[in-house]
């Protein structure tokens, strides 16, 4: 068992999620930065998809009731085991009775904590991930609170001290660049306006969470005139309510783009200008409010090439940690 002494911010149990229920409005959930969770799990000898903890901006304080290997990945922040500072992206040995805690975050936004054996909460629709809106999965369907105790699964053989080199990690640059394949309802805005969307510098707004990231600072969209279709609504940014893609960028009222993430609402009535490519979804997890951001227009072939490069990077992580 582990005991949460201090919960940190919006700390939840997450694994790689529960695909297959999006048509019912139950999103995949799971780690926002999937590569960081996979790497943390591999470091401590877990399956890549074991459940770990995802904390936002501020790490929790955790007391261990048994010996374990722990790896902290994702955002950069000081890590302490009983007040002794420890490296990130490294398999750390924590003894029963010791306490893991964190200092202030210096880069990135979300911290992943994998513990040998994984967090053993009940599976809901095949996943241990927390979906806060549905009050389901994870620990009682909610963010962790002080005093919560979590069971661990059985650990496999792994050794302390293994480390993932910096070249195999990934954090967004500044400005962050998110590659986007235009489409779905991009014909609703004028070509000039679409060009502005990709030319302007945006900033992450404070409304940025597991459901979606909002951006501010670019020019408002100009819409192609139309007679509102029956069922769509009067606003030029409205459409007849339709399914939403993960990573899709809606711009309600043409003002502030919202990129839907792992806890996406599965549908709604706003037009989508394009979709962030799968290879860049993890980056969003590590973006802080106010971070300057550019949306970079790419085509489907470029998106597939980026996806391929991303898979090679994951293979390199696996190969490195298999040694």
């Amino acid at each position: 068992m582990i005991e949460i002494r201090k919960p940190g911010l919006a700390t939840t149990v997450q694994d790689l999620g529960r695909p297959g229920h999006y048509h019912l409005g139950i999103p995949q959930s799971g780690a926002m930065d999937r590569m960081a969770l996979r790497a943390a799990n591999l470091l401590v000898g877990n399956e890549e998809g074991a459940a770990g903890l995802e904390a936002t901006f501020m790490g929790p304080e955790i007391a261990f009731e048994r010996d374990a290997l722990v790896a902290v990945t994702g955002a950069t922040l000081p890590i302490f085991v009983d007040d002794v500072e420890q490296p990130g992206w490294t398999a750390l040995e924590v003894r029963a009775g010791q306490v893991l805690r964190f200092g202030y975050l210096t880069a990135g936004a979300r911290v992943y904590i994998a513990i040998s054996g994984g967090i053993d909460v009940p599976l809901v629709l095949g996943s241990r991930s927390t979906y806060l809106v549905g009050v389901m999965g994870g620990h009682e369907g909610r963010a962790l609170a002080a005093g919560d105790r979590l069971a661990l699964g059985s650990a496999r053989d792994a050794r302390a001290g293994r480390k993932l080199p910096e070249k195999l990690r990934r954090l967004p640059g500044s400005p962050a660049e998110l590659r986007v394949v235009p489409g779905i309802y991009d014909h609703r805005v004028t070509p000039e306006s679409a060009a502005h969307f990709y030319a302007d510098e945006w900033k992450v707004a404070p409304e940025a969470d597991r459901m979606g990231y909002r951006f501010r600072g670019g020019r408002p969209m100009e819409f192609v005139p139309r007679r509102p279709p029956f069922g769509a609504g009067e606003d030029p940014s409205n459409i007849t309510d339709s399914p939403y893609a993960y990573g899709c960028i809606q711009i309600p009222g043409g003002l502030e783009p919202i990129v839907l993430h792992r806890d996406a609402v599965s549908g709604g009535g706003y037009f989508t200008i394009g979709v962030v490519i799968s290879a860049d979804m993890d980056l969003i997890a590590q973006m802080q409010p106010n971070m300057p951001t550019r949306f970079v227009r790419v085509d489907l072939d470029a998106a597939l090439a980026a996806r391929h490069a991303r898979r090679e990077q994951m293979d390199a992580i696996r190969a490195h940690l298999a040694r």
Partner: peptide
């Protein structure tokens, strides 16, 4: 028909509800 990034295919049967 429109691709949504590299993982989605979106199809609009009609602009209006019918």
């Amino acid at each position: 028909f429109s691709f949504g990034g590299d993982e989605h295919l979106f199809v609009e049967c009609d602009e209006e509800m019918t």
